[in-house]
Amino acid sequence: MVLLRLDSLALSRSRFALSPFAETLSTMIVLSRPCTEPWLTAWHARHHAAFRARLDADPFTRGLVMLCSSTKYLPDHLVLPPPGGMGTTLESELVEVARVPDTAVRSSLVQSVADSWEHHDLDWLTGHAHAARSAELFREVWQEHVAADWPGRRAMLERDVTYRAGLLAAHGWPRALHQMSRRSAWVGSDTIRFSDRPGPDRMVGPDGMLFVPVSGPRGAWLCEAPGRPYALVYPARGAGGQAEGERRDPARSERAVARLIGAGRAAILSELERPATTSELAALLGQSLGTVGGHLAVLREAELLVSTRVGRRVVYQRTELGDLLADAGLGSGSSAAKPT
């Protein structure tokens, strides 16, 4: 069992961050496997063939990606903590990855092979500049399979942060971290159980931790680097949805609710299955801030939602009445969380 033990200052200084690099790694793992999540089927079908062609064309790419998708120990040079908080850029992360020396890359790949549940070798690890080649691979995958979706993905990730920040303000870190991943849990007053597999505990110092959501449907990993805070990558809430066959037939009831309160307000009410700010809703729905703000005012007056302030953000969430209307007429799950 791997435990993250936080000192007395770590809790107050822990924070959230975004990582385009971790998002790209999560995407690569999803594309390397058969699609098992119904809500990802269309996106996976559009990208899978091109991604597999890339793997087949380059032994280094294939070896690295297939190892990452079948090991309990991700290579160290691919799990560096994001350096820029919520404003982290892919380029800033790629620069750090490319600097890792070949000896360190090979050493961690040997550990990844040892901890894999499939058979791997390192015959593909030829030449030199392994970290720089990895960084270039991530840049290309980002450009081809992630960049076009990033605004929508980022909005969904920011919503997860907003949701957890609200829980943090009201209830503290244990509640904010609840169900971040299938294996992580808060243990006692100052300890996070990160994994149930054997491994050394980590001591989290006064700089605290980073918590980094990604849109992949599963998987969590720990990022670490000397002199940097640990970062826990986890699947964001709302990264998936129900299968079509598991839903009630929504078309008729959706039209009825849209006629009742208007299509724009119905879309906002559906999106507010998870709390969000005006700007997040505007980005997700492709509407102006003024339009969304007007709809929110009407829905709030109708007591279908309420607003609360979390730091500098005003977060909207459905009331019990709003939940009843949404559940009856709009189904559950949000199409905006699906990669497109």
Rank of each mutant, 00 (worst) to 15 (best):
A17V: 10
E136H: 08
R175L: 12
F60I: 07
R247Y: 00
V306Y: 02
E23G: 01
A231Y: 00
T36P: 06
F51S: 03
G85R: 05
L272D: 05
A225W: 06
R182G: 05
V310E: 01
S116L: 05
L4P: 07
Q317D: 12
G322D: 01
R62I: 06
A302L: 14
G127N: 02
F60C: 01
Y230S: 09
S253C: 10
S181P: 04
G63V: 02
P34E: 12
G241H: 02
W173Q: 05
G63F: 00
E280W: 01
E280C: 09
H47N: 14
R309I: 07
G127A: 01
W39R: 14
L3K: 15
R300I: 10
F194M: 07
Q143T: 13
Q287D: 14
S32P: 01
P34A: 08
L78S: 00
Y73F: 14
E303R: 15
L3P: 09
G333N: 01
E37H: 13
G219C: 05
A10M: 10
P229M: 06
E280V: 13
L260R: 11
S134E: 07
W150A: 03
R237S: 09
G293N: 02
H130K: 03
L232F: 13
A256C: 08
D249Y: 13
R15I: 13
T162E: 03
R274K: 11
L64Q: 08
L330H: 08
L281N: 01
S26W: 00
E144T: 14
L55T: 03
A155L: 06
G293K: 03
E273M: 04
S334W: 12
G87D: 15
H128R: 15
